[in-house]
Design a protein around this nucleic acid. Sequence first.
DNA 1: GTCTATACACCGATAGAC
DNA 2: GTCTATCGGTGTATAGAC
Lengths: 198, 198
Amino acid sequence: MSRIPAPERRRALVEAALRVVSQRGIAQATTRAIVAEAGMSLASFHYAFESRDELIDELITTVVAREQEAVLPEFVPGGGLAGILEAGLVRYIEHLKADPEHEQAMLELTQYALRSPERHPLAVQQYERYAELAERSLERAAELAGATWRVPVAQVARVLVAFTDGLTFTWLVDRDDAAARAVAHAAADALSRMADAP
Amino acid sequence: MSRIPAPERRRALVEAALRVVSQRGIAQATTRAIVAEAGMSLASFHYAFESRDELIDELITTVVAREQEAVLPEFVPGGGLAGILEAGLVRYIEHLKADPEHEQAMLELTQYALRSPERHPLAVQQYERYAELAERSLERAAELAGATWRVPVAQVARVLVAFTDGLTFTWLVDRDDAAARAVAHAAADALSRMADAP
DNA sequence: GTCTATACACCGATAGAC
DNA sequence: GTCTATCGGTGTATAGAC
C-alpha cells in the first residue's frame, strides 16, 4: 500500500474500528480485525497508533465529538410541549431502528470505558456531551411550544438522556417498537411537566 | 482439593464467575480468572462445564432466576401513587449504590448475550423476568394507593424497566445521586399518570 | 514507510499421571 | 476425580527485509 500520512491512516483505522465494533462488538474488535477491515497490514497499525488502547480512546472521543442532535424537535400543531417532545423521541426511535448497531456500539464503548479508571473520564465526557445536545433540543422544544422550563434545563436534559438510554437498551433487547413508543410517550409526558405551559 | 459433586462445583464456579464479572468485567472473566477466584484448578473447570460459553449461559440464567423485586413499594401516607412509586425507585437507587458492580455486571451480561444469536434469547428472557417483577411491584403499588391501572400493567411494567435501565446506566457513568433522584421523580410522575386515582 | 515474519503472553481446552 | 503439564490458537506488539 502506498504512503499515507499518519493522521489519515489514523482516521481510516478509527472508521474501520467503529464498523467492527458496530457489527461484531467490542470484544471482537481486535487489532487484527480492525486492520483487516481497513485493508491494512498489522504493522501499519502500530505505525499509526502506540497501542490498541490508544485507538479505542480515539474512537470514543471521535465518535462522541461528531454526535449530532438525534432529536430535532419539530413543531407539532396543537401537540403542545408534550407532543413536540414525543415527536422528537419517536424520531429518535426511527434513528435507532435505522442503525441499531451504532447505538449498541456506543453503549458498549461506554461500558468498556467504565471498566478502567483511566478511561472512565471518557465515559463521563460522553454523557456530558449527550446532556449538552439534549439541553439544546429541550430549549428549542420549549421555544416552539411557547413554554418555560421550571426546572433548570440542564437537569431536565439529564433526565432525557437517562430516558433515552433506557429506551435504547430495552429496545435493543426486545426490538419491540410499540413498547418503545409507550416509553417515548411516558417520557415526553414526564418531561413536559417540568415546564410551565404558556 | 477433595471430591466435590459436580452440581456443587458448578454452583461454586458460577458464583466465582459472578464475582469476577462484577469486579473486573466480562472481558476479564476468563476461565483462568474464574477458577482462580473459585480456588480450583483449570482442569476442574472442564470437568464441571463443557466450555466457557456454557458457564456464561448458566451464569446469566442463574443470576436472572434469583433476581428479586428490587423495588418493593411501601405505603407512603399521603404520597399517593406517584409518591409510592417514587419511594420505590429511590429504594432502588439505594440498592444500586450499595452494589453498583452487580448492576453493571447484569448490564454487561445482557450486552454480551445480545452479540450472539444463540444467546440473544437469554437477554430476552432476562428482560421478560424484569418486566414480570416490575409488574408485581406496580400492582402492589396501585393496591396501596387505591388506584387502578388504565393501561395494561404489563405495558406499564416495560416502561418502568426502561426507566430503571436508563437510571442505572447514567448513574453508573456519572454517579450523580441528585440526577438519579430527579430521574426517579420524573419516572414516578409519568408512571402514575397511567393509572386512575381513586 | 510498508510489508512479512515472528516474539511472547494468554486464551480455551485436553492428555495423562496419580 | 483431581491435579500438573501441555496443546493449538489467537491476542498485542515488534524486528528486520525491502
